[in-house]
């Protein structure tokens, strides 16, 4: 079985990359294949990278407050570029007010991780969610 492939992405104008980089490093150490987009990517660029790299997980980091605009855009562009967001685990990390969690989840986000989350928790979440989502998507397709 191939390694789980994670795209860690910084989207929008915000330059706070400490969280994204530390998480990327620890996910790599946990045995995942990690691709980091670098800074200031547009939703289109992130979606294109997710599709081209055949990512199992897309982790989007934002500290800009623009998540309600930019995260749904990434998900929509993944669809537009021929990817299937039903099969990809979409994670968001950074400064996200708790009262916006539900709306983000309704828009297709699987997990939200705020400052202080142990990275071990993110690793476990990915290990559990990747096969679960793939299986669900498979059942949906065969149904």
């Amino acid at each position: 079985m191939r390694k789980i492939r994670v795209l860690v992405a910084k989207v929008g104008l915000d330059g706070h990359d400490r969280g994204a980089k530390v998480v990327a490093r620890f996910l790599r150490d946990a045995g995942f294949e990690v691709i980091y987009t670098g800074l200031h990517r547009t939703p289109q660029e992130v979606a294109m990278a997710a599709v081209q790299e055949d990512a199992d997980v897309v982790g989007i980091s934002l500290h800009s407050g623009a998540h309600m605009t930019l995260v749904p855009k990434v998900i929509n562009y993944i669809k537009e570029y021929g990817g299937d967001p039903d099969e990809i685990v979409i994670l968001v990390g950074g400064i996200i007010p708790e009262d916006e969690f539900d709306e983000l989840k309704a828009k297709g986000v699987d997990g939200i991780f705020i400052p202080g989350t142990p990275i071990a928790e993110i690793v476990e979440f990915i290990k559990e969610m990747v096969p679960k989502k793939k299986e669900k998507a498979r059942l949906k397709k065969t149904a």
Binding site: G12, L13, D14, S64, A66, T69
Partner: peptide
């Protein structure tokens, strides 16, 4: 150094 109507500014105007 971007204006509020720049496509890259979408969703970020006045946020932080």
């Amino acid at each position: 150094g971007l204006d509020s109507d720049d496509p890259l500014s979408d969703g970020e105007v006045g946020k932080v």
